[in-house]
């Protein structure tokens, strides 16, 4: 391994292994060593399965000592996973992720978030101005502008999927890259753009404030794998057991989240217990009473058993390749390692 390939964490791991080795010379050996792993996460309800698995000890049961590394956006999680700063990350299937996979830095190992009809998911919003001028349903989208973060973002992909379903030319929708969700919201509120697709907890709040109008839900048209679990190729090759155990524990968190927050017949006390756990990580700056509805609004459908919709991931990959955003050399097997979870 060259110096440049050796990441900081590997260095640290080696260093601590050496130190531990030295120290153990004079000490009795400690049984059942825990594996240290770092999980890159956003402070969103959709990342909640990891928080639940941690708080309820599912990781510990698998002999994993999990630490969280928090990010402001999903994209850097992929970069941090590639560089080895975090071991696992939950992130959208973006062009950036694919290009990193093409460089054999990381792979998708499990599914996390899936758009599914009838469950809370991405919401299509229209600006008040455009709404008054007649943009009241998804069918009116052609000829209007739509804010997104970046070319090649999940927002970009979602829009093209809607266009596909409806048989429109994607060029009929004017896509406006604004880099940041804050800028997107500002542009929509001030009527600079006509539409955007947004995660439920932000979209619902905007609609409730009257700052924008809901004109449809993405999963009425498109069901697809939004975000996935990624890890570095190094982890897959050197510690497949850790990956397996991590996904198993994470899946338990997913099961709790789906049963306790999404199921309409969920036990209210379980719902409250989960919300309280999530409140340690999400909307921490607000009191519980105020945060609880926002946290619960943010719940989206999580893949049971962290199962992965590989077919859909491949579909997404092909779209990126066809759009010239991702190197055409990329194969689905480079992008996805399907040995850890059930795929379809």
């Amino acid at each position: 391994m060259s110096i440049f390939k050796m990441t900081r964490r590997v260095w640290l791991a080696n260093l601590s292994a050496m130190t531990a080795g030295l120290m153990s010379l004079g000490m009795p050996t400690v049984a059942a060593a825990q594996d240290d792993v770092v999980l890159g996460a956003l402070r969103f309800t959709s990342h909640g399965a990891g928080f639940v698995a941690y708080e309820r000890g599912y990781f510990e049961e698998e002999g994993l000592n999990v630490k969280f590394e928090f990010f402001q956006a999903a994209q850097p999680i992929a970069v941090a996973t590639a560089s080895g700063d975090v071991d696992f990350g939950v992130t959208g299937v973006t062009g950036g992720l694919m290009n990193l996979a093409e460089k054999n830095a990381l792979r998708i190992v499990a599914g996390v978030l899936h758009e599914k009809a009838g469950v809370d998911g991405m919401i299509v919003l229209a600006s008040n101005k455009a709404y008054e001028e007649g943009l009241t349903s998804i069918d009116d989208m052609p000829g209007h502008s739509l804010a997104m973060t970046q070319v090649g973002s999940t927002f970009h992909y979602m829009t093209s999927r809607i266009a596909d379903e409806k048989g429109w030319d994607i060029a009929d929708i004017k896509l406006v890259p604004l880099q940041k969700v804050g800028s997107m919201v500002a542009a929509l509120k001030s009527g600079q753009v006509d539409m955007m697709i947004m995660v439920p907890h932000i979209a619902k709040a905007l609609a409730a404030d009257g700052a924008a109008q809901q004109i449809g839900k993405l999963n009425d048209y498109v069901e697809y794998q939004i975000s996935t679990m990624i890890t570095s190729v190094e982890n897959i090759e050197n510690n497949p057991d850790v990956v397996k155990r991590f996904i198993r524990a994470y899946s338990k968190g997913i099961a709790d989240m789906n049963a306790g927050l999404l199921d309409p017949n969920a036990d209210p006390s379980e719902k409250e217990a989960l919300t309280k756990i999530l409140h340690k990580y999400v909307y921490t700056d607000q009191p519980y009473e105020k945060a609880a509805p926002s946290i619960q609004n943010g719940a989206m459908f999580l893949n049971e058993g962290a199962a992965l919709n590989k077919t859909d991931v491949e579909k997404q990959m092909n779209w990126f390749v066809d759009s010239g955003l991702v190197d055409s050399d990329l194969t689905v097997d480079q992008l996805v390692d399907s040995t850890f979870v059930e795929t379809n």
Binding site: Q75, A78, V79, A82, T94, G95, G96, L97, N99, L100, K103, A147, Q150, V151, G152, S153, V176, P177, L178, Q179, A187, V193, L325, V326
Partner: peptide, 17 residues
């Protein structure tokens, strides 16, 4: 919202890694 521009090109390249 820039479609063209060296800055936009650099940003896109960064986002796509």
């Amino acid at each position: 919202g820039a479609e063209y521009g060296i800055g936009a090109y650099v940003l896109l390249a960064g986002n796509l890694m």
